[in-house]
């Protein structure tokens, strides 16, 4: 346990001893802030029209849900930036030799690194979510579905970060690690498109593999066991691949 924390703390520090951490926080908050401004603007206009017709609009459905969905998509683009250096940089610097000859297990090392990435993403989500508090000041959104949305964001990030971690072990070049992770994330996002025109078994499988359909229920504020299992098992797959990759690193290097 202590070893995991040692590694995790060191990684967290290194995000913030370079501009990377601040940049990620700022970019994510800026993008989500802009989205928030747009969504709220649109909501205000539509709300007035609805009122004239005597209807009512739900803040959760028209503001929170699209925003959380957008956060999930923007996250896909930023996740490679979080994970790309985790192992690639250690390999380039030669510090991997220090880690691999220290009395800690590979599992502790990779879990520590993965946790630090999850914390980093969590910090980005928390910072960007300041906007949401304004909704409570001027309206009465429902908190619970919002929290479920955040849970979904973290589960999705945990899965993609573990894949990014694995990809980072395969190279000493951060750019290669980052762009490969980006490609994989993007494909996992778009795989569900095939479901739009094909109903064969392979299309069903592809759309099931895709991240987006599993995220939708969380954005709506619903916890579906099927989707939780999907994200958790994807996380374990990523961490398992990382462990195997570290082991093969020892044999090959």
């Amino acid at each position: 346990m202590r070893n995991i924390w040692t590694i995790c703390k060191k990684e967290m520090k290194s995000y913030f001893s370079s501009p990377v951490g601040y940049l990620l926080l700022t970019m994510f908050a800026l993008i989500i802030g802009f989205f928030f401004w747009n969504v709220v603007g649109y909501f205000a206009m539509m709300g007035q029209r609805q009122m004239q017709m005597g209807g009512n609009m739900n803040v959760n459905e028209f503001v929170v849900r699209p925003l959380i969905q957008n956060m999930s998509v923007v996250g896909l683009f930023l996740i490679p930036l979080i994970t790309m250096r985790l192992f690639a940089e250690e390999k380039r610097q030669g510090t991997i030799e220090l880690l691999l000859t220290s009395p800690i297990s590979d599992i502790e090392m990779l879990v520590g690194k993965w946790l630090s990435a999850v914390f980093m993403y969590g910090a980005m989500v928390a910072f960007a979510s300041i906007s949401f508090f304004f909704l409570f000041a001027y309206g009465n959104p429902d908190l619970k579905p919002m929290l479920v949305g955040f849970l979904g964001l973290m589960l999705q990030a945990g899965a993609l970060l573990s894949l990014g971690l694995f990809i980072s072990t395969t190279t000493k070049n951060q750019i290669i690690a980052g762009s490969t992770t980006f490609g994989v994330s993007l494909l996992l996002w778009t795989f569900e498109w095939v479901a739009g025109y094909e109903t064969a078994a392979w299309a069903k499988v592809m759309s099931y593999i895709s991240v987006i359909p599993h995220f939708e229920s969380f954005a709506r504020g619903v916890i579906d066991t099927k989707d939780v299992i999907y994200f958790v098992s994807l996380t374990f797959l990523g961490l398992f691949l990382t462990a195997r990759s570290l082991e093969s690193l020892r044999w090959r290097s």
């Binding site: 202590r2 070893n3 040692t6 590694i7 060191k10 520090k13 290194s14 001893s17 370079s18 610097q93 030669g94 510090t95 991997i96 030799e97 220090l98 880690l99 000859t101 220290s102 009395p103 800690i104």
Partner: peptide, 29 residues
């Protein structure tokens, strides 16, 4: 590993840490 201290050909240092931070990290490790 507990009983070995190893200095590889290029010292395994983290350039963005101070000497104190680095040694505290290695010590904990």
């Amino acid at each position: 590993k507990k009983r070995i201290g190893y200095l590889p050909e290029t010292p395994p240092l983290y350039p963005d840490m101070t000497v104190d931070e680095y040694l505290l990290f290695v010590g904990a490790l």
